[in-house]
Amino acid sequence: MTNSVTKGQTMLGIQSIASYLPKGRVDNLEQADRFETDREFVEQKIGVTTLPRFEAEDSVVSASIAAFKSLCEKVSVDPADIECVVLCTQNPDNGGLPHNSALVHAELGLSEDCACFDIGLGCSGYVYGLSVVQAFMAANGMKKGLLFTCDPYSRILNPEDKNTCLLFGDAASVTLISDSPRYTLSSAKFSTKGAGSEALQKNSNLLEMNGRAVFNFALQDVPKQIKRVLESAELKMEDVDLFLLHQGSRFMLENTIKRAGIPAEKAPIKLAETGNTVSSSIPLLLEKELDSSPGTILMSGFGVGLSWATAIYTQVK
């Protein structure tokens, strides 16, 4: 099943992706020693050996600008053509006032005829964000927009909490949504379990996570949604070339992939040097995989909210 476009309506989708990882690094094995946690557990179960961390000069805006500069090295982008900027973050600069997309707009010198707004979603944010941007652009006759993701959880980590300090890394990404897409949306599902929100929350400005509750949520709800999206798109598991699941932890990913019946070779696990980068985890993966030009891609993001979203994108022939 391919994405249909109403006659006269511009086809919009993913044209290109770029990312930014800060220079700051935390040795996760040394952190394991500090927490008196077995190094093998950190490597095999969490799956993270080093974590990118914002340094003093880093910010959501500066990281987003750095990602945009990388994008311009891949594809020609005229700032004058950008009509929409959306930034997905839960930890914005200056507490979100002004909205960080406006600050990015200023740094890039974009036209005043450019819509800018932030959305506050976590690990499901990229999948949600793609649909939000594309729908907004389509409704308003726009042809080129940017979706940024940047959620520096290092700002809200409790340095004494090994459940979160060993897991989260900082990163940023930018996706060019345009009328010259390489991939377009085929089918998507979005879900929320607000009653389970205490599993991942901020308390006294610090992150609290119930790892067991998050693990059970991923194992029980995500595979069901993946199967529903495949059915909606009239596709079978073997019809999908690439499965990009949110990079929460190695153990959670391996079990979710197995429970969903996804062939392991089609679902990369690459968080050893990034950790869980929240809304940036899927675009970081997608950027690396686009060179192989997979025909059909299924993305699934899940986490804080509790929120989960799954979408299928197909290559434009």
Rank of each mutant, 00 (worst) to 15 (best):
T149F: 02
C88H: 03
P263F: 01
A199E: 00
R25G: 03
K258S: 11
D239L: 07
R25D: 01
S293H: 12
L110A: 11
F35Q: 04
G248K: 01
C114M: 08
S154P: 05
D118V: 11
T175V: 12
K270R: 15
A264R: 14
R250S: 11
E57M: 08
C88W: 04
T310D: 06
K144M: 09
L298P: 00
I82E: 01
P98I: 04
D33T: 06
Q225M: 15
H246A: 02
S197C: 13
A272Y: 01
L306N: 07
E30C: 00
Q31Y: 10
S154G: 07
V174M: 06
L147G: 05
G169S: 06
V240R: 06
K317G: 05
G145W: 05
S187F: 04
K45D: 05
E160D: 15
Q201D: 07
T184D: 01
T2V: 09
S4A: 14
F41V: 10
A264H: 07
L242N: 02
E273T: 10
Q201Y: 10
L97E: 13
E40R: 11
L286A: 08
T184G: 08
F243R: 01
A172I: 07
R155F: 13
S62R: 13
D151G: 02
W308L: 04
N203C: 11
F190P: 02
Q31F: 03
A172G: 06
S62A: 12
E36V: 14
N203H: 14
S64A: 15
Q315F: 03
S307H: 06
L166C: 06
S111V: 06
R53H: 13
E36F: 13
T184E: 10
A135M: 12
Y153R: 06
Q134I: 15
R228G: 00
L200G: 05
A102N: 11
S280K: 02
R212L: 06
L167Q: 04
I262D: 06
